[in-house]
Design a protein around this nucleic acid. Sequence first.
DNA 1: CAATAATTTATAATGATTATAAAATTATAA
DNA 2: TTATAATTTTATAATCATTATAAATTATTG
Lengths: 142, 142
Amino acid sequence: MNRTGMTDAAELLREHGIKPSHQRVLVLSYLMTHPEHPAADAIYRSLLPEMASLSKMTVYNTLEILRKAGLVRIVRIGDPEARYDVMTDDHGHFKCEICGGLSDFAVDMRPLVSDGLAGYEIRERNVYFKGICPGCLENKTE
Amino acid sequence: MNRTGMTDAAELLREHGIKPSHQRVLVLSYLMTHPEHPAADAIYRSLLPEMASLSKMTVYNTLEILRKAGLVRIVRIGDPEARYDVMTDDHGHFKCEICGGLSDFAVDMRPLVSDGLAGYEIRERNVYFKGICPGCLENKTE
DNA sequence: CAATAATTTATAATGATTATAAAATTATAA
DNA sequence: TTATAATTTTATAATCATTATAAATTATTG
């Protein structure tokens, strides 16, 4: 056991039956330490300095493996590109329509379960709001 | 005033300052009468028999105009393609991971507003669940 | 009707993602 | 260890929804 993001990620991969290759550990630990929900391309570009041989295809492959294992979730709000979110407790996403920024907010999803879904097997609950973030609101009034 | 979907759509467009061209009325009334949240291409293909000259570009243009006017909302869950939803009261979307079907369910979004969003201007609230619909659950156990 | 603006259309371009297969790495067995 | 097989990574090309552009059509106004 170790306190660095790196080995935590490796352990997490092993726990989910995924071989912790160098590239996979890089991708997962990047997601674990970057809460801004990066897109595949952003992850790729950020890791390139650390690993020049990295291919974007590997990033896509890894993200798909992580998604299937339930370790990450895809956040798709408005933009054409998918953004990735390490699975933690239920939380909502706020997308600013001006700066495009994506932030988390706490949300209790239990009261959402409605009678309209009797007979459905719910596997994932997502909440996202759109609007304007405090920073952009400030710029508008200036 | 008239009871057909057609003229209702035309009126709705006028109320929102959008000139109700034949193609725009077709697209909007199609959305109003088809609750399955069709994608742009599905709308296009469905309307082609009615209007052979229709271009897919017009469908995209119209959907963007409707979205800007707040008449429709984009639903993007998992798939690469956007699906469109006429704006009604707040409701959630359930996406079946097996058949891909999209259905609505009632949801009260008011209790969702969390203290974490103080200072944010919320313009749109979305809730979507993923899982397996009753039909696909039945097929699995057979 | 003529002139101008708005809308629609056809076509090409973009860009994120996926498919494919070759190369490299890692695991397995002799 | 060495050969072989399996897995993973990589490079390249293909796909597909969407957007850009500009020409053609339609509507509007003087």
